[in-house]
């Protein structure tokens, strides 16, 4: 070992020690508030733009927990939705704006607060030709009033859609009807696949990507 290497090693050790010390005596957080942004009083109504729509089918049906009806589905679309005012996407424990596609609350896979992109799961059914019924259709994608999706029934969802339509929000096309759907054994594998979309469109959400991509233990 030459002298310069030794000095570098000592410097590195010193830096490590400094790092440990900094970790122990971390600076006090700023006094500034870091509360979730206040939502509009009149109820949120903001459009979401469809960036991509990936049709899928499931060999083993799953339950859509994001509506009161708890519908069973064996096909659907993995959507990438863009929201201009991404502060509306901030996750909160109290009621948060519900993301709808048409008259259906969709499952939010990720946050999207920083990227403005939300990967979302829209349940649908398999067409007679093996395609996904919702693929290629035109729907209104939007953020509605804060609520718990599992408490939203079809009537409430329809009312929210009517509100969005009355507000003149634009309609989006949900991809192409002719695209061959991806086939997954079950919702678990679909969830793992969705991590690739999160990684592509919301690269800041690495913890989520890792969490969705862990090895499948049993099937």
């Amino acid at each position: 070992m030459n002298s310069s290497t030794t000095i570098l090693s000592l410097l590195a050790a010193g830096l490590l020690v400094t790092g440990v010390a900094l970790g122990v005596t971390s600076p006090r957080p700023a006094e500034d508030d870091s509360a979730p942004p206040v939502l509009p009083d009149s109820g949120v109504l903001a459009a979401a733009r469809v960036v991509s729509a990936t049709p899928f089918r499931l060999q083993q049906p799953a339950i859509h927990a994001w509506s009161a009806e708890q519908l069973q589905y064996d096909a659907g679309l993995l959507l990438v939705l863009a929201v201009d005012d991404s502060e509306l996407l901030v996750r909160r424990q109290v009621a948060e704006p519900v993301l709808y596609v048409g008259a259906m609350p969709v499952e939010r896979i990720n946050d999207g607060r920083i990227s403005g992109h939300v990967v979302a799961l829209l349940p649908s059914v398999t067409r007679a030709d093996g395609g996904v019924a919702a693929a290629g259709s035109e729907r209104l994608a939007f953020l509605g009033q804060p609520a718990l999706p599992e408490q939203i029934d079809a009537r409430m969802a329809a009312a929210e859609l009517a509100r969005a339509q009355a507000a003149g929000l634009p309609v989006s096309r949900l991809g192409d009807a002719d695209v061959e759907p991806l086939l997954f054994p079950d919702r678990g594998e679909l969830g793992a696949f969705s991590a690739t979309l999160v990684a592509q469109y919301a690269p800041d959400e690495q913890d989520l990507v890792r969490g969705l991509s862990v090895p499948r233990l049993t099937r």
Binding site: L190, G211, V214, R219
Partner: peptide, 10 residues
């Protein structure tokens, strides 16, 4: 150790 047992079983 991290693993998945399926949907919502990570």
């Amino acid at each position: 150790t991290l693993y998945s047992g399926g949907s919502w079983l990570n």
